[in-house]
Design a protein around this nucleic acid. Structure first.
Lengths: 228, 228
DNA sequence: CGGTTCTTTGAGGACCATCAATACGCGTGG
DNA sequence: CCACGCGTATTGATGGTCCTCAAAGAACCG
């Protein structure tokens, strides 16, 4: 018996190859929920009862310690979160909040673990997704430790440029203060960093970024497939 | 047909639960190699032909960019590396060098991928190991972004204290300059950081650490199960 | 339109990196 | 056993980067 409610996620890579029977078992007891912007869905330290998937909207993973907060990553359509905690059934390491109105699919962790054991295609997809997230985090850490804040910003702008279809003018997808936190700097410093990138071919007006001199920007940023 | 050469690794968590038949298939074409200290075994950007496992000794994962280098993590007995790259068959993100004389087991990546598909126990072990590494990396990043260098050092010393059996006096397992790189600071600054920890109950003499006031050190470090 | 939040700009200071010089530790070979 | 050389560790001086604090301007929202 197929559950039409979840057919919209049937095509995402995590589920694309699995048997229909497994998919139905997985989504049994799952549900879809709409969240308003700026809503904390999960707090670090909790138990992972559900694997979460962003169907639409935008989610920030962040973490706090001793009155400080940092943005770990930003997730868009079809991204999963809480996957590693779900698999190991251990405490969740990062909190999650919506940045926009978002539609989130929640699959009981128990379902994920049991279907993992019976459906090799799903197991393969899980391990691919985990590897992808893991590698992304390693890249993130290399970015933080090997580059200055100005270099990180330059590479972030180049990456967005590519993600948005190689246009020279585009909108930042997130608020600057969150971008600052993601890049490991303060909002004040991000503001100055934008100014400092001006001679390297970047113009900023509000949320609008214009790359005015691609060659110079690339020469400064030195993007690297093993980081970006 | 069992291959006695590899029986010594049969018990490590990654292989403990798998069928003997799968284990034999996995280790076919594998080999064990001894490396001297300070030997680069793998360079970032290479293709993952073998899954590596540290049988004895000590391995540092590190990364370079634009004439800078940083230590990503240090691995001891029974740790795997190059796992995510092996699974996704993508470029290796970190280089690996021995810190001591080390014995390394190398399993053909193709074996890992094929046995993964046929042995659910192995698949489960792989996904557990991946999750563990992934979570460790997230913790590492939180540590870097949420704490000052002094706090990172204090928590590192506490973690070593626990790892070495709750003794108040122990030896640092790695050189200070590598510790500095791991903690995201320069050797000079690490040296000063040790001095700055003196009032918080830490005495240093060469490689020997003595915790002279545990309560004060803990109060300063504020260790957290979601980071450490 | 008023209040809130975000962003920008400036000034000051803390922290950290760099450079330089010395001391220490260790292994090699005389 | 000692002398030497090499890499590491420490210490001091200096400068740059980045954070904090403060205030003003801009954008957003009820």
């Amino acid at each position: 018996m197929s559950t039409p409610r979840f057919e919209s996620i049937r095509d995402i890579p995590l589920f694309a190859d699995m048997a229909q029977e497994s998919f139905d078992a997985l989504t049994r007891g799952s549900y879809v929920q709409n969240f308003p912007p700026n809503m904390v869905m999960i707090s670090e330290g909790e138990t992972p009862d559900f694997l979460h998937i962003v169907q639409s909207g935008c989610v920030e993973l962040f973490s706090t310690w001793s009155n400080r907060e940092t943005s770990v990553t930003t997730l868009y359509e079809n991204s999963t979160f809480i996957l590693a905690a779900t698999i190991k059934d251990q405490l969740i390491l990062t909190s999650a909040r919506t940045l926009q109105k978002s539609r989130i699919i929640m699959i009981p962790s128990e379902n994920v673990r049991s279907v993992f054991k019976t459906d090799p295609e799903f197991a393969m997809a899980i391990v691919e997704e985990l590897s992808r997230c893991y590698r992304a985090t390693i890249k993130n850490m290399k970015n933080l430790k090997l580059r200055t804040s100005l270099e990180r910003l330059a590479n972030y702008l180049l990456k967005q440029h590519r993600r948005q279809g190689d246009v020279l003018e585009y909108q930042l997808p997130i608020e600057k203060r969150r971008l600052a936190s993601y890049l490991g700097m303060t909002p004040e410093n991000l503001s100055r960093a934008f100014n400092n990138l001006k001679p390297y071919g970047v113009a900023v007006d509000g949320q609008t970024i214009t790359i005015t001199d691609m060659a110079t920007l690339v020469a400064f940023a030195k993007p690297d497939i093993l980081i970006d």
